[in-house]
Design a protein around this nucleic acid. Structure first.
Length: 488
DNA sequence: TTTTGAGTTGTTCGA
DNA sequence: GTCGAACAACTCAAA
C-alpha cells in the first residue's frame, strides 16, 4: 500500500483526506503525513455522490460543529483545513493542480458502498501516477479478520467476543502530531457556513446543543467524565435511562472524533489487576460495535434486506398514521413516547429505550423494521450504518443472533423496571408530570379522579394507547406464525 | 461428519 | 411477591 517516494516529490505536499475521522490524535493518515516531513493539505469533501447516504438533519448539525473543531485544531498545528464540495475524485485532482500534490493519505471506511468507491478512486489516482495510502480505519480489528473455525464470518456474538478476546490486545493510541508544515500558497476553501448544515427555519438545534459538544475535545471530556463518574456500577446502572449512566460516546465514535483504541486504552486496568466486571461490560459494548461492522461488511445488504429470509414473508402492516404517532412520541405508552421525544429533542436515545421503542414499532404496531431504521438514521446524531441495521434486525428477530420473536417487550413493565421513579418519563413527557408513580407508565389505568387531579385528560392532553398491549402481543405472535407457515 | 451445547438485553403463567 | 418453566424449535460454533 505504500509506494516508494520519488526524490522529486520530496517537497510536494501530501493531501490528507478526512472523512469519518475528524480528529488529529490517533489518526494514522495524518500521522503518516506529518512523518513524511512534507507540507500537508488537510481536506474535507462534502460528498454529493448519488450513492452516498444523505446525512440526517441531526448529523448535519453535528458535522458542522465537528468540522469547526477540527479546523481549529489543524489551524493550531499549522495547516488549515480545506473544505470543498462535490465529487471527491474530481476535487482531489483539482487540489493537485493547485498545489502540485500527487499524494493522498486517508483512513479506511467500511461501509460497503464507500469501500468500493474508495477503491475506485484509489485505482484511478494510481493509474494517474499518484501515491495513495489508505490507513487503518476506526475498528479494533479489520472487520474481515476474525473468522470462525470453518473460515466464515461470525453470526453469533458470544463466539465473536471469545475470538476477539483471544487475539492480541488492541494497539496503544497515537499522539497528535506536534506540528504540521503548511503548503506554501493559497488553496481556496469553502466557508463552512455556506454549506448550510445548520438548521435555520426553524432552528431546532437548541436541545441538541445543550446536550452535546461535538469535536475531539468534547469526546475526550466525555470519556473522562464517564470513567470518573459512571463506570462504577455501569453493569447495572446502564439500563436506567435517567441520568448519566452510559458513556454517550456513540456520536463521537460515529464521526471519528475518538477511536476505539483510545477508549480501550483508557479502560485498561492497572497491570496485574483483572478488569472489573463493569469495565468488561463496557468493553463488550465496544466489541458489539465491532460485531455490527463485522456483520455489515460480510453481509452488505444488512441495512435493507432481512438477514433471515423467512422474514420476507412477514405480514407487515402499512405504516400510515401509526408510524407518525410513533415518530412524534404520541403512542400513548409513556416510556415509548419519552424515548421518541428524547430522540427528537436531543438527537440521541438511551440504549434500553431504543430496544423498547423498536420492539413497540415492530411488534405492537407490526411496522417493518426498515421504517424504524430509516427514522433513526435521520434523527440520531450517532447514526451508524452497522450498529443501526444490526440492532434493528436484532430486535425484529430477523437478524443475526436474533432474539426469539416471542420476546416482546412489555412497555409498561419495562418502564416500571427501568424508570421506577418516573424521572425519565416526567422529563420528556411533562404533561404526565403530576401523575403518581403508580400510574405513570399506564395512565389509562388511573381512576378519573387521579387523572383530573394531575391535569391529565386522556385523548386530549395525552393520547390514549394506540394499541392494547395484550391484544397487540397476541396479534404479533399470530403474524409470526403466519410468516413461519408461508416460509416453510 | 456428526454431535453437542449454547444463544445480550423478555414475558407470562401457574405454583 | 417470588420462582421456574414454557414460549418453538433453530442455527451456529466448535469439538
Amino acid at each position: 500500500m505504500t509506494s516508494t517516494k520519488k526524490s522529486d516529490k520530496a517537497t510536494a505536499p501530501v493531501i490528507v483526506w478526512f472523512r469519518n475521522d475528524l480528529r488529529v490524535a490517533d489518526n494514522r493518515a495524518l500521522d503518516a503525513a506529518a512523518e513524511s516531513g512534507r507540507p500537508v493539505v488537510p481536506l474535507f469533501v462534502l460528498e454529493d455522490a448519488e450513492d452516498a447516504i444523505p446525512l440526517g438533519g441531526a448529523q448535519r448539525w453535528w458535522l458542522h460543529h465537528s468540522l469547526a473543531a477540527l479546523s481549529k485544531s489543524l489551524e493550531e498545528l499549522g495547516a488549515p483545513l480545506i473544505l470543498r464540495r462535490g465529487d471527491p475524485l474530481a476535487i482531489l485532482k483539482e487540489i493537485a493542480d493547485e498545489t502540485g500534490a500527487d499524494t493522498v493519505f486517508w483512513n479506511r471506511r467500511y461501509t460497503p458502498t464507500l469501500t468500493k468507491r474508495d477503491a475506485e478512486i484509489k485505482s484511478d489516482l494510481r493509474a494517474a501516477g499518484w501515491t495513495v495510502e489508505s490507513h487503518e480505519g476506526p475498528l479494533l480489528h479489520e472487520p474481515t479478520r476474525l473468522k470462525t473455525g470453518s473460515g466464515g464470518p461470525y453470526r453469533v456474538y458470544t463466539p465473536f467476543w471469545r475470538a476477539f478476546s483471544e487475539t492480541p490486545p488492541p494497539r496503544p493510541p497515537l499522539d497528535a502530531p506536534d506540528s504540521l508544515i503548511a503548503h506554501d500558497g493559497d488553496t481556496a476553501s469553502d466557508e463552512l457556513v455556506d454549506w448550510s448544515l445548520l438548521p435555520t427555519k426553524p432552528d431546532w438545534s437548541g436541545g441538541i446543543a445543550d446536550e452535546w459538544t461535538p469535536g475531539e475535545d468534547g469526546a475526550a471530556e466525555r470519556l473522562e467524565r464517564f470513567l470518573d463518574e459512571a463506570i462504577d456500577g455501569y453493569g447495572d446502572a446502564r439500563d436506567c435511562p435517567d441520568g448519566e449512566t452510559t458513556s454517550k460516546l456513540s456520536p463521537h465514535l460515529a464521526f471519528g472524533e475518538i477511536t476505539p483504541f483510545q477508549i480501550w486504552e483508557a479502560t485498561e486496568e492497572r497491570r496485574g489487576d483483572a478488569p472489573s466486571s463493569d469495565m468488561t461490560k463496557f468493553r463488550k459494548e465496544l466489541v458489539w460495535r465491532e460485531f455490527s461492522w463485522h456483520l455489515l461488511v460480510n453481509f452488505p445488504d444488512l441495512p435493507t434486506a432481512n438477514f433471515n429470509e423467512d422474514f420476507d414473508a412477514f405480514p407487515w402492516r402499512e405504516p400510515g398514521e401509526d408510524l407518525t404517532a410513533w415518530q412524534k412520541g404520541r403512542t400513548g405508552y409513556p416510556i415509548v413516547d419519552a424515548g421518541m421525544r428524547q430522540l427528537w429533542q436531543t438527537g440521541w436515545m438511551h440504549n434500553r429505550v431504543r430496544m423498547i421503542v423498536a420492539s413497540f414499532l415492530i411488534k405492537h404496531l407490526l411496522i417493518d423494521w426498515r421504517h424504524g431504521e430509516s427514522w433513526f438514521r435521520d434523527t440520531l446524531v450517532d447514526a451508524d450504518p452497522a450498529s443501526n441495521a444490526a440492532s434493528w434486525q436484532w430486535v425484529a428477530g430477523s437478524g443475526a443472533d436474533a432474539a426469539p420473536y416471542f420476546r416482546i417487550f412489555n412497555p409498561i413493565l419495562q418502564g416500571e423496571k427501568f424508570d421506577p421513579d418516573g424521572a425519565y418519563v416526567r422529563h420528556f413527557v411533562p404533561e404526565l408530570e403530576a401523575l403518581p408513580d403508580k400510574y405513570l407508565h399506564k395512565p389509562w389505568d388511573a381512576p378519573e379522579s387521579v387523572l383530573s387531579k394531575a391535569g391529565v385528560k386522556l385523548g386530549d392532553t395525552y393520547p390514549r394507547p394506540l394499541v392494547e398491549h395484550a391484544g397487540a402481543r397476541e396479534r404479533a405472535m399470530v403474524a409470526y406464525k403466519d410468516m413461519k407457515g408461508k416460509a416453510a
